[in-house]
């Protein structure tokens, strides 16, 4: 009898427990492969942008979560640049990147369909640190260091 009560209690507890987040084990395995370290995630609708480290060097990487494959980003990753922050639009078409190159920290916009990199100037000048694109990829928020304090600049994109 006590066993029946115990089983019934477990069934009731499981049935009443709140829904919980589920790890995406299939994709998490893929994300661990071929990189020694991965950071700064940014999710689009079916895209994950992040900074992955291979052979001691960090690169901007984009993964198509639906097809479970990495997506090439021709022209974005340069051997003389170190990415610092990345953000992807919901449709995966645009990536905003903060990178360091030649002792200069710069803000870039990458359009995937044309493989073009555009440098976005900051006015007044400052040092960008972290970037966030809106879902439509038409507005960008960037954390900027100016005169020893942090600002957040909003930039409208064409």
């Amino acid at each position: 009898m006590s066993r029946v009560v115990l089983i019934l209690s477990i069934v009731l507890l499981v049935g009443c427990s709140p829904d919980r987040p589920t790890p995406r084990s299939d994709l998490n395995g893929l994300l661990r492969q071929s990189v020694s370290s991965r950071r700064d995630p940014s999710l689009g609708s079916r895209w994950l942008a992040s900074l992955g480290q291979r052979n001691g060097r960090e690169r901007v990487e984009l993964v198509d979560l639906q097809r479970r494959t990495p997506v090439p980003l021709p022209g974005l990753n340069r051997s003389d640049a170190q990415p610092i922050s990345v953000s992807v639009s919901a449709d995966g078409e645009r990536l905003a990147v903060v990178q360091q190159r030649d002792d200069r920290t710069e803000l870039l916009l990458y359009r995937r369909s044309v493989g073009a990199v555009q440098r976005l100037p900051l006015e007044p000048p400052g040092v960008p640190r972290s970037v966030s694109l809106d879902g439509q990829g038409k507005r960008l928020a960037v954390q900027v260091s100016r005169n020893g304090r942090w600002d957040v600049d909003l930039i409208r994109l064409p």
């Binding site: 709140p18 995406r24 994300l31 020694s36 370290s37 991965r38 994950l48």
Partner: peptide
């Protein structure tokens, strides 16, 4: 957070390295 809030990507530390892990939130 994914724009439709059905997934979350988390950067965590695992054995001294940074990892990114995805959580499915669609049941929540």
């Amino acid at each position: 957070l994914a724009p439709d809030a059905q997934q979350l990507a988390l950067q965590v530390t695992d054995q001294g390295q940074w990892r990114v892990e995805l959580l499915d939130l669609s049941s929540m």
